[in-house]
Design a protein around this nucleic acid. Structure first.
Length: 270
DNA sequence: TATATTTGACCACG
DNA sequence: CGTGGTCAAATATA
């Protein structure tokens, strides 16, 4: 019954995030304590142990509650500030991107991309900056384009396509698969640069994390229906297998492909 | 404030 | 003309 922290929105403000982390720790501790008590009370069968267990139960419940409240507050705040900034920008500079020559001039929507990168450094210490995302023609996965933050920009680049999946069933800390194919790795040294791990977490939209999680996986299943995907567990962790994709300074960009649906949730249209 | 991400527009290519 | 890749303004986060 612990709330799965890893499924939580990563975009909390630092303080709140810390609070939650602390609470979760307390929760886990209480959990363990409960288990311990449970075991020992089975052996000894004390009467007072039931009282203790009740107490632990209470602690656990209150921790749970607190966490739930905190998370819901957070999401409420998010949506509030969102609408606020929307209104704000309506006055000054909001314009429909109908006008020409105004690339990237748009009002930001909320959850077109419900995933955020938690770790942006690959194992080799390269930092990748996302510079674009596109949907692919026949599949639901958007494709993300990353570029190395380092400034040695020489022509070579490469593309990594990963596909991700979910499972309707249970969730353990996400494991998902990726297919990587580098696309134009022109002159790459065959320096076997290792394994790149990127971890992403889903950003929830409205309710408690667990609820959303369930809902989402259902919806995704719905949407992804008849492709050749299998559904794997929910949150994401993408692991690219060893690929000679990035040498000291040759490769500068890659591209990722997720098996996620382009969620188009909006709170209210405007 | 600086730095990173999001996302529609732009553009080259087939 | 559709598609994939990139740009860059708007936005988010540190």
């Amino acid at each position: 019954m612990g709330s799965d922290v890893s499924a939580w929105p990563l975009k909390l403000s630092g303080k709140k995030k810390r609070i939650i982390e602390e609470l979760v720790q307390g929760q886990e501790s209480a959990n363990q304590l409960q288990i311990l008590f449970h075991n020992s009370s089975q052996e000894t069968g004390h009467l007072s142990s039931s009282k203790k267990e009740a107490l632990i139960d209470k602690i656990l419940r209150s921790l749970d509650q607190t966490l739930a409240v905190l998370s819901s507050v957070e999401s409420a705040e998010v949506s509030q500030s969102q609408t606020a900034s929307n209104q704000d920008s309506v006055d000054t500079r909001s314009k429909r991107p109908a006008s020409k020559d105004k690339r990237g001039c748009y009002r930001r929507k909320r959850a077109a991309q419900a995933w955020t990168v938690a770790s942006d450094t690959m194992e080799d210490g390269h930092a990748w900056r996302k510079y674009g995302q596109k949907g692919i023609l026949n599949s639901k996965h958007p494709r993300s384009y990353y570029r190395c933050t380092r400034k040695y920009d020489e022509g070579s680049s490469l593309i990594v396509t990963s596909s991700e999946c979910w499972e309707t069933g249970t969730v353990d800390n996400g494991d998902s698969k990726i297919l990587i194919n580098h696309h134009h790795s022109q002159h790459l040294d065959p320096t076997p640069t290792t394994l790149a791990v990127k971890r992403e977490t889903k950003e929830e939209t409205s309710t408690t994390p667990s609820d959303v999680t369930d809902l989402d996986s259902i919806m995704w299943k719905d949407l992804m229906g008849d492709d050749e995907f299998e559904y794997c567990s929910e949150p994401a962790e993408m692991v690219s297998n060893t690929y000679p994709w990035c040498t000291e300074m040759s490769c500068r960009s890659f591209e990722l492909d997720f098996g996620i649906k382009p969620l188009e949730f909006e709170f209210d249209e405007l």
